[in-house]
Amino acid sequence: MRELPRRDFLKLTASALLTAAAAALAAPAAWAEKFYREPPWRRKKPYWGFGVDIEKCIGCARCVDACKTENDVPREPFYFRTWVERYIIRKDNEIKIDAPNGGLDGYPPVADPETVAKSFFVPKLCNLCESSPCVQVCPVGATFKTEDGVVLIDKKYCIGCRYCIQACPYGTRYFHPVLQVADKCSVCYHRLKRGMVTACVEVCPTGARMVGDLSDPESNVTKFRENNKVQTLKANMGTEPKLVYKGLDKEVR
């Protein structure tokens, strides 16, 4: 083997380094794209988001009733696609959360109202996670995120293993007793596709709920996120929900 003269070796190294530097400058590294945190609704249209204004919710549970009617959710008090929790935070920091029959039966009167520091209603539903734990754990690909950002269940393909139910950090899934498959809030996908709002939004008497297109800069949900201080549930889980709450208390789980 021929020996490489020092001069040639230096020349070779320098030119290789220069070429690499020029290539990196010319095309911003393609792998960096993977870590680019641009919200997907900049590229995809439409992209559905949801907003809840806790300061407007009166706990009437019309949404719970409408959801059960629209989506054939069993009427028994433990199957819900959406439900409304009541939080009662006492002055001595005791916290009580209740949702009798998801809110459908009304809420019992609060005992000793003078000791209540604050109390409010929190409607719960699918959080529309951008990186959904439920989708990740499904062994057969029966639950998935659509191109417009909605997490759906393929009821014909679901094997009923219940992994997704225990994976959802928000407890928004249940096991359908008749169909024997997992079921969850679909943000009334069949209605959105027909240009309608979800059943819960339709019947909400105070406008506490809204559904809209995040890719549209003028949509109700985009404006709701811009004009208010909004928060998601369990941000520490890294699920990046597209359901945002206005007026969310730190005690809400």
Partner: peptide, 24 residues
Amino acid sequence: YGKIGRYRAEALDDSKALPVRYAG
């Protein structure tokens, strides 16, 4: 399966075809 993503593309049609109960 796999036409759009890791799911049955037909499942989308199933979801879209569900009946509407609230007229608006």
